[in-house]
Write a protein that binds this DNA or RNA. Structure first.
Length: 940
RNA sequence: GCCCGAGUGGCGGAAUUGGUAGACGCGCUGGAUUCAAAAUCCAGUGAUAGCAAUAUCGUGCCGGUUCGAGCCCGGCCUCGGGUACCA
């Protein structure tokens, strides 16, 4: 008897797993797509194009976790949907494969970063392939391939060979500038350049030595070498861009960052500041990202003015957004790094000043920030002259003034600026009140609706009028002029690292020169990935014969930053294998802008700003025909992990269950989530997990179990809460995982990962399978024409799903599909016409299963070649509508009425009902609102 | 501090233009089937009161507009993100 039941048991189990054999189905279709090149796209001018792009990943050693595919699944659904709607869809994938982790690993192990990168890329590819994406892999790019980074160098060359003309407001060839210099010098040139450019004539230009000419041109080039204050990270041995520094520490690795003056390559992104700001308006991006970019660019309109000095020929130039408060100026403050510090410091103040400046330079950015409340400064001993009142005003040095913003000097208006007020208060400086009827004894007044007072020709004017008037007067008197200032700094473009793009640059007599046309540098081999003993970057280790090109005295030792390759990769996909051009004009004209870009919001000011900059530049030099890379962008929210914790009693090896943890002094320890099921710990597994837990003791709860605590936090290896897609694909299949990731909630939202609900989605796919199979698991559909009810279900679904995908509401589509199957199952409908439409609707989400059903329905071609069903209103026309009837806004009962009744008829019918009389309870209806096919509301 | 965004059952979430709040799924409860389980199917499931019909309350809090507010307006609270001496 026992034996017999075991056999039955085995048979039924076998049978139930046979129902929907996702493993076979998925591997079958993976092979089919590969062998049939189903996802290969070519340019087809007869079809409208659509470009769907994912932010390409950095292939890290940890592989993909469940958060990565979220965006890829959404973009894949959209790409498939667009294709079914007749678009020619470009949907590529590649790797941002230069970067620090591979190099850090290389330093530790000596293994070439190219080797680890290759292994990681292959792992990513295996994982991606299992998820059924419709990527056209023939277009794959890797930023670390020389066939790719050669074109990154090409763009750098173009930047080097260009300057920014402010008259035309675009980049132009540097040769044009040279001819202007030869004809008329630089006096009339209106171009973006370094601050320290002096005026020269054509004659002077011609008299310049070669080296002088090159140095001058560098001040105009869009890619230029200059001495600048940089964020130096000693731990990483490299400089970092502003967006790579967070709270005074490196974003990668979290190491301290200090300010250092170094000769570095920079890109003149500030030339594009205004266009980058202005063009944000036309982008379909979230307001928050646009806002972040706006703040980062930080445009402020004001005036620059010169203050002359009492005992010195020089002037101090300041930038102010409030020239209307000029009469409130009672002192000046310059940054400790300001070039006039030494000249202005008088003998008796010498010691204090140099001490203060030294202290300030030692303070890291972070210390300066945490010191905001602590006002500090020192007097130089010198005085400037107020341009209007001719009064003597003291010049101070303080680190609340930043060298890198504006001119590194401010005119202090203590009555109108809180920082100036604090400073004046601390050091007993004069506070002049220039606001009418405003008390400034407790704090400064920054109210823009104030009236100016005590200010000569500005008296009684509003701030707005005073601003205008002040600038006019400043300009007529030649003290200064209207000026627009940006917070945006030029982007430092060199890194003292190995694993990045080499520069197509060599040096002769310490002057940089570009390699001639067609020549590009391959990353040379080195013996170690560390700086040299002299502190030069790793590339200085390469011997002369290791370089594929070697010219001049030496090659450039720096490499490009991580964002170089990612600033233009979306263009290369269009023409990924073109050996002659970055991208052919024909192809870039066809594919154009990215129509939908999906990725994280963490690149708001890095990648997303630099890509916009490079796109504008490439547009200026006529390489492409559009100015913005990404038309519409969706930022997917992070999938957070659910960490589990055990509680160890301090100084023991005893662990106490969650419920009883407060009875002891414990510390919380992350435990691997694979050892926890429903918050219950697998004690044996835990003991074997780490050797130090082998002899652990446990205090269990009342159910004799060990219950873990939990918290929702970012997924990371160190928190043992990483969920890989691999296990889930193994247990439930890729189709289920795809649907489940979408079902979790709106794409943009942050959400905790929880596998509890996944079988709900899996059951839905099984239910659909059962709908078209009989009890022996034979495919079984009816060829009868569907009836009205069945068509109605179908067309409701078509409408809902089409609308939802169009508004990127990926999660609600899943429920619509579920509702549809539920209703079809209730109608016992397996009519092939209906199933056929349903398979198409399902296919963007569950491509493997849909292909299988599609084939079983007798189709010879892939379902990707099908046509999205067209919604037909007629199927939804109803004779009746069920009205909710409300009294004073409270719904009391429903009433089914023919849809052809007019308002008066509806009103009459409702009022005659017994139920209405009951709810009126003797009261007179004051008003009746009837909204046809919506609601009836009786006010009484 | 300033600038964005979000707060809805036990949980993830739905409600697209102001019109039946809680779709769909999970979980839970009961039932059918089964020797038993798995799977499947049926019913129930916001709170409170009631055998029930039903009633009252209910979308972070307070107030407003409206016949009608999760949605619009004003003022708060909480959480998440960005930014921080920017002159």
């Amino acid at each position: 008897m026992r034996k017999y039941s075991l056999i039955i048991n085995f048979a039924t189990n076998l049978f139930s797993t046979m129902v929907y054999q996702f493993k076979n189905i998925e591997s079958k279709w993976r092979d089919y797509w590969k062998s049939h090149s189903t996802y290969k796209e070519s340019e087809d001018s007869t079809k409208e194009k659509f470009y769907v792009l994912d932010m390409f990943p950095y292939p890290s050693g940890a592989g993909l976790h469940v958060g990565h595919p979220l965006g890829y699944i959404a973009s894949d659904i959209f790409a498939r949907y667009k294709k079914l709607n007749g678009f020619n869809v470009l949907h590529p994938m590649g790797y941002d494969s230069f970067g620090l982790p591979a190099e850090q690993y290389a330093i530790q192990t000596g293994q070439h970063p190219a080797v680890t990168t290759k292994i990681n890329v292959e792992r990513y590819r295996t994982q991606l392939d299992k998820l059924g994406f419709s990527f056209d892999w023939d277009r794959e790019v890797r930023t670390s391939d020389s066939t790719y980074y050669k074109w990154t160098q090409w763009i750098f060359k173009k930047l080097y060979q260009s300057y920014y003309c402010l008259d035309k407001n675009k980049a132009k060839p540097i040769n044009d500038l040279i001819s202007i210099f030869e004809k008329q010098g630089n006096e009339l040139v209106n171009a973006c350049c370094d601050d320290d450019v002096f005026i020269f004539s054509a004659l002077q230009w011609k008299a310049f030595s070669e080296s002088e000419k090159q140095k001058m041109l560098l001040k105009y080039r869009l890619a230029f070498l200059s001495q600048t204050w940089v964020n130096w990270c000693p731990e990483l041995g490299t400089v970092l861009a502003n967006d790579e520094v967070k709270d005074g520490r490196s974003e990668r690795g979290n190491y301290p960052v200090e300010q250092k003056r170094m000769r570095q390559w920079s890109l003149r992104i500030t030339a594009y500041a205004d266009r980058l700001l202005h063009d944000l308006d036309n982008l379909e991006w979230t307001d928050s990202i646009k806002e972040i970019q706006k703040n980062w660019i930080g445009k402020s309109v004001g005036a620059s003015l010169h203050f002359s000095l009492e005992k010195n020929q020089e002037t101090i130039e300041v930038f102010t957004t409030r020239p209307d408060t000029i009469f409130g100026v009672s002192f000046m403050v310059i940054a400790p790094e300001h070039s006039l510090v030494t000249k202005l410091t008088t003998q008796e103040n010498q010691q204090l000043v140099s001490q203060y400046c030294k202290q300030a330079s030692l303070k890291s950015e972070r210390d300066r920030q945490s010191d905001v409340k602590n006002v500090s400064g020192v007097f130089t001993g010198s005085y400037a002259i107020h341009p209007f009142t001719n009064k003597k005003i003291p010049v101070w040095i303080a680190d609340y003034v930043l060298a890198s913003y504006g001119t590194g000097a401010v005119m202090a208006v203590p009555c109108g600026d809180q920082r100036d007020w604090d400073f004046a208060n601390k050091f007993g400086l004069e506070i002049v009140n220039i606001f009418k009827d405003v008390d400034i004894s407790e704090k400064a007044n920054d109210d823009k609706s104030s009236i100016i007072n005590n200010s000569d020709f500005l008296d009684d004017l509003s701030v707005k009028d005073a601003l205008k008037r002040a600038i006019e007067e400043i300009e007529t008197r030649g003290i200064g002029k209207k000026k627009i200032n940006y917070r945006l700094r030029d982007a430092i473009f060199s890194r003292q690292r190995y694993w990045g793009e080499p520069f197509p640059i060599y040096y002769k007599d310490d002057i940089p020169y570009l390699l001639e046309e067609g020549k590009y540098v391959d990353l040379p081999p080195v013996d170690k990935y560390l700086p040299t003993e002299q502190g030069e970057p790793p590339l200085a280790r390469a011997k002369k014969e290791d370089w594929n090109v070697f010219e001049g005295d030496r090659m450039e030792y720096n490499t490009m930053p991580g964002w170089a390759g990612s600033s233009w990769y979306f263009l290369r996909y269009m023409d990924a294998n073109n050996p002659n051009e970055l991208v052919s004009k024909e192809k870039s004209d066809y594919w154009g802008q990215v129509d939908l870009y999906i990725g994280g919001a963490e690149h708001a000011v890095g990648h997303l700003l630099y890509s916009r900059f490079w796109t504008k530049f490439l547009y200026d030099i006529d390489c492409i025909s559009f100015q913005e890379p990404f038309k519409k962008m969706i930022n997917q929210g992070m999938i957070l992990g659910r960490s589990s914790f055990v509680y160890r009693i301090n100084d023991t090896n005893t662990f106490v269950s969650f419920e009883k943890r407060k009875e002891h002094k414990t510390s919380r320890i992350h435990v691997d989530i694979s050892l926890v099921d429903n918050d219950i710990l697998d004690i044996e597994g835990f003991k074997n997990w780490r050797s130090d837990f082998k002899d652990a003791d446990f205090i269990l709860n009342d159910n004799n179990q060990y219950c873990c605590g939990f918290e929702v936090e970012k997924m990371s290896k160190s928190k043992y809460n990483v969920q890989t897609p691999d296990d889930l694909v193994e247990t439930f299949g890729a189709d289920t995982l795809r649907m489940y990731e979408m079902f979790l909630g709106p794409l943009e939202q942050f959400k905790p990962w929880d596998t509890k609900g996944i079988n709900g989605v899996h059951n839905f796919l099984r239910k659909f399978w059962r709908l078209v199979h009989d009890e022996q698991n034979n495919f079984c559909v009816s060829e009868q024409d569907p009836d009205k009810k069945e068509w109605k279900v179908m067309h409701q679904t078509i409408k809902k799903i089409t609308d939802d995908i169009d508004r990127y509401s990926f999660n609600t589509v899943v429920s619509a599909l579920m509702i549809c199957v539920n209703e079809l199952a209730e109608l016992k409908c397996n009519k092939s016409a209906i199933i056929s439409d349903f398979a198409i609707l399902l296919s963007p989400y569950a491509p493997h299963l849909s292909e299988e059903i599609w084939q079983l329905l007798g189709n010879k071609e892939s379902i990707t070649q099908a046509q999205w069903p067209v919604f037909n209103e007629q199927y939804l026309v109803e004779d009746n509508f069920t009205y909710p009837v409300s009294f004073n806004g409270k719904m009391r009962f429903t009433l089914e009425l023919p849809t052809n009744l007019d308002k008066a008829q509806i009103e009459k019918t409702v009022l005659e009902l017994d139920q209405t009389i009951k709810y009126l309870d003797g009261k007179e209806p004051k008003r009746i609102i009837v909204v046809p096919k919506k609601i009836v509301n009786i006010v009484c």
